[in-house]
């Protein structure tokens, strides 16, 4: 009997200790992430200017988001998905190619790796400013280069024309993170045992065949992580659009995050802003789950 109460007291004390150890993390996590998300979900069903009580309107905001063209959500979503598409089908294959190449013990592989990774460390705001200088219609390197090689007719006001603005955002976005995915994949490639490679080579496989049939299947889990990061990262795009185009011209380069900010500062529609937030969370989780499922299917 006394033993039992003693044990209970110990358990209780242990429980308190565990709670106290978790407390700082939980306060931050729940206070800044979880509680606001719950509030966002709740407020996404309100017509709300952020300061009054607001009116409950059910799912009207969601309906409007997809049907009211002036909100541009479909444009923003399309742009984000396009960035995701280029990310998965241009950026990642290129990263994988670099990782496989460097994984073959080329001379100076560490130096190449470090150089290729460098853009990841630079703030996207700085990258954006640099590209603005490159794209500058009068003095930018791009137009002056085109002029120098007699392709003057290809000159554009890169970030200001409807036909080129989105491309002008996509190129630096894709370029900056090639090194990031390359590094992850390279770590995977290096983890493949030399014996395994050599065994395949002795069986007469070429280097590309070794990569294709030995290395890639082994690093599949890393590729999955890269695909998830690439897609969710694209959905969250904000910095480069804000710096390069401000969503223009004529709102053709808006992405969900810039629209979200516009809802707060230009339109005072906090309810609708919350709706966009919720959509972003849902999309990020939906894509993460779908990608995980797709990779499981292939493995089976």
């Amino acid at each position: 009997m006394t033993d039992n109460t003693h044990k209970k007291r110990v358990d209780f004390g242990k429980g308190v200790t565990i709670f106290l150890f978790l407390l700082p993390a939980l306060l931050l996590f729940v206070g800044i992430l979880i509680a606001p998300i719950i509030v966002s979900v709740y407020r996404s069903m309100y017509d709300w200017n952020g300061f009054s009580e607001g009116t409950f309107i059910g799912l009207e905001n969601y309906k409007e988001l997809f049907t009211n063209g002036s909100i541009k959500f479909m444009v923003g979503l399309k742009n984000a998905l396009l960035i995701a598409f280029f990310s998965v089908f241009v950026q990642l294959p290129f990263s994988l190619f670099l990782a496989l190449l460097l994984g073959r013990k080329v001379k100076g592989e560490k130096t190449f790796l470090s150089v290729f990774f460098m853009p990841v460390l630079i703030s996207t705001v700085v990258i954006g400013q640099l590209w603005l200088k490159i794209y500058n219609p009068d003095y930018g390197i791009l137009n002056r280069f085109l002029e120098a090689v007699n392709l003057g007719h290809l000159k554009h006001v890169w970030v200001g024309e409807v036909s080129t603005a989105l491309g002008a955002v996509i190129v630096p976005t894709i370029w900056q993170y090639i090194g990031y995915h390359m590094l992850l994949m390279y770590a995977g490639v290096k983890g493949v045992s030399t014996d395994l490679r050599e065994a395949a080579m002795l069986d007469g496989a070429t280097k590309w065949q070794v990569d294709r049939y030995v290395v890639i299947p082994i690093i599949k889990p890393i590729i999955r992580v890269s695909v998830i990061f690439a897609v969710t990262g694209s959905l969250k795009t904000y910095d480069l659009v804000r710096i390069l185009t401000e969503g223009g011209p004529f709102q053709t380069t808006e992405v969900p995050s810039t629209l979200l900010e516009n809802m707060l500062f230009l339109r005072n529609r906090y309810g609708m802003g919350s709706t966009i937030s919720v959509m972003l969370i849902v999309l990020c989780f939906a894509f993460a789950l779908a990608i995980t499922a797709a990779f499981k299917d292939k493995e089976a």
Partner: peptide
Amino acid sequence: FLMLGLTIPLQASIVPVYV
């Protein structure tokens, strides 16, 4: 539960936190 933070976008909490 704590790992949810890896997928949750920064944008998720911006409206309520701002208000």
